[in-house]
Design a protein around this nucleic acid. Structure first.
Lengths: 206, 206
DNA sequence: AACAATTTTAAACAAGCGTTTAAATTAATT
DNA sequence: AATTAATTTAAACGCTTGTTTAAAATTGTT
């Protein structure tokens, strides 16, 4: 635990936590400064404005979120193994960062905050070769012929939503935190089986 | 289009739209009043405070959202047919109200706004007999033996998330509104097939 | 028509917002 | 050690926030 973070880094780190927890509209510059143990004016000294600080934080979080688990597709494994490991790691990442999907979708949905620079993300995903691999597998009849957007949606739906819906599910079903974590680990298995079963070996299904 | 709404109803209606679009933190009392064509003071005259108005709106939206499509389980159809029709109507409802899932999950995740009264919702869902029907189907081996919480999660993930993720998916994949609507309609089919295939006839799968 | 109750309005309130300023402090350079 | 630059601070700026007030306008009642 090296406490050797610069003032700028401390503010950026605190801002990330506060923004993710409360959203851009739900927090104040003073709250961020206090969380970083700093004076309010320092936020603008280093980042010009709350808006600009948010833009920096959001872009970093989005990139980290989209790229953290995609690396598995560079490995030399079968597509099915990659898919299983990808889902495994996606659940692992979200267990540590359960608020990030909601944060990203919420802030993106009111996009007038600032224009986000996402240019590189899809390119970096593409650089793993995952898209070519999927298309090739479709032509070989290994996986179902579905638009990649829909495949992404199927996988992301089943990985992200269980974490986003935690307050609702705990509330409706009166579950403790531990109980919900149990359901999450079960959900990971079900989701993996279901997605693999649906996407792969399409000849036996349709 | 009867414009015969009372002042109170006009404010409630405007508040619903503004809250759903911008969130509790993202809008002001004056904005709601203007959207209703009313004076600011009238908001507090009829609803005491912004917080209380929000609580009323949120509870109504949540109840409407959770109950709008569950009625199909009262019908006299096979469980599989009910499931298909349920998903169909869920997508239909969300096509008209695409922002509601994100609204509910966002506002619930920072629950200190006010305590929400949800007591009746699960009871009303239970009154359709859907839970008994599912448990019975599980004992008969018709559907996979999975905790109801996980079944709910599977269905809700695949119905809600595609609408919540619209800004992200349009952005990442450079899709027009029309193109995304196309994917949504395809997604409905895929989700239906996948869920039915996974949940039903479990003997042939595991 | 006169009165009372309800509804609507404009104006104001203190408190908090993002941001700026200018002075105080620390660090770097000569 | 003296001087300059960079950092940090406390205080203030104008503005918006949620809410309240008290008067005006409308409606209902006798």
């Amino acid at each position: 635990m090296s406490k050797e973070l610069s003032t700028e880094e401390k503010i950026r780190e605190a801002a990330k936590n506060v923004f993710i927890a409360k959203g851009f509209d739900g927090c104040t510059s003073r709250e961020i400064a206090k969380a970083a143990g700093m004076n309010v004016a320092l936020v603008n000294y280093y980042f010009c404005s709350k808006k600009q600080l948010f833009k920096l934080v959001f872009e970093a979080v989005l990139e980290d979120f989209m790229l953290s688990t995609i690396e598995v597709f560079r490995k030399d494994l079968s597509l099915e193994s990659k898919m299983r490991i990808f889902i495994e790691r996606e659940f692992e990442f979200l267990t540590s960062h359960p608020d990030i999907p909601r944060f990203i979708l919420s802030e993106l949905s009111r996009g007038d905050k600032c224009e986000f620079d996402h240019a590189g993300i899809l390119d970096k995903i593409a650089s793993t070769g995952v898209f070519e691999e999927l298309l090739e597998a479709q032509e070989k009849g290994v996986i179902r012929k579905i638009d990649l957007t829909n495949i992404m949606l199927l996988i992301m739906s089943n990985c992200h939503y269980p974490f986003m819906a935690k307050p609702l599910m705990k509330y409706l079903n009166n579950l403790s935190e531990e109980q919900y974590q149990e359901r999450l680990m079960l959900q990971k298995q079900y989701v993996t089986e279901m997605l693999i079963g649906y996407l792969f070996n399409p000849k036996t299904n349709s």
